[in-house]
Design a protein around this nucleic acid. Structure first.
Lengths: 140, 140
DNA sequence: GAAAATCCTCAGTAAATTAATAGGCATTAA
DNA sequence: TTAATGCCTATTAATTTACTGAGGATTTTC
């Protein structure tokens, strides 16, 4: 019943790229450092995102990645499906008996509804208005 | 992003007990055979359900299990929480940054909404009207 | 042309989880 | 007394997760 680090870190990558959309490529090193994640692990997560056409890579020095489309056209569902597989609470819904099948379908549709209606634009803009840290003071 | 066999078989057990509610105890052997599952595996799943107070056991010959409450008072959420742990799409939602935290919370609430509003009565009654098997003919 | 910064690929691995199986003891109805 | 059940602890094969390691390919800048 969990989304693994694949989907979670994958979303983190995509949100970072959305924040920098239109400003040229962002390197994985930058994203890894900003989020305290293993750059090498992120490389393995972005490969399927590139294969799926969600990001484009620019190789060589000062290269990196950019979104293939504008942030309002890419959803959390697009990202999660690539990294976690089809959105479904169980394998083989169709094999279940009617009562349980309907339950799994209702859960699946509820999750889909959230993921497919949340865009990278939504996620990136909410990331902007950071909550103050504990102990934060407003210095004039 | 999956509910494992623990939660799925656990629900299967509870639906069978709901169907027999008021008719005395049902043995795991009966449930295992009816659903082509390992009786021994089901024993391990019903132990936490008993510890959580969702079912009561009757030991000895012609014993078995009964629901602790009426089917309309026990939800799929009760069963899933016992066997799969808290309903949440990620561990430590509160540690995530605001944008992702809100996403996980919306997903969590959507799943909760379905699971907590589906009772064993709902599931047992929908199991009654079986779909015809493939090759089924209506013999008069 | 050399060096540095990046992407790209394949392989390995420790820990955890899943989905059981094995073997037996305890209790109770008939 | 026996058969039918529940109860309990341990073991295990397969899979998944979350990485780490090693190095090659490409491109920019000096």
């Amino acid at each position: 019943m969990k989304i693994s680090t694949k989907g979670r870190y994958g979303l983190t990558i995509m949100i970072e790229l959305a924040k920098k959309h239109g400003e040229g490529p962002t390197s994985l090193k930058t994203i890894a450092q900003a989020n305290e994640l293993s750059e090498h692990y992120l490389e393995q997560l972005i490969a399927p995102l590139r294969n799926a056409g969600l990001v484009r890579s620019i190789r060589g020095a000062y290269g990196g990645y950019i979104l293939s489309d504008i942030p309002s056209k890419i959803t959390a569902g697009d990202v999660i499906r690539v990294l976690e597989g089809p959105i479904t609470p169980v394998e083989g819904i169709e094999d279940e008996e009617p009562a349980k099948r309907e339950l799994w379908i209702r859960i699946r549709d509820a999750i889909k509804d959230v993921l497919d209606n949340t865009t990278l634009e939504d996620l990136a803009s909410h990331s902007e208005d950071q909550e103050p840290e504990e102990g934060y003071m407003f210095y004039i």
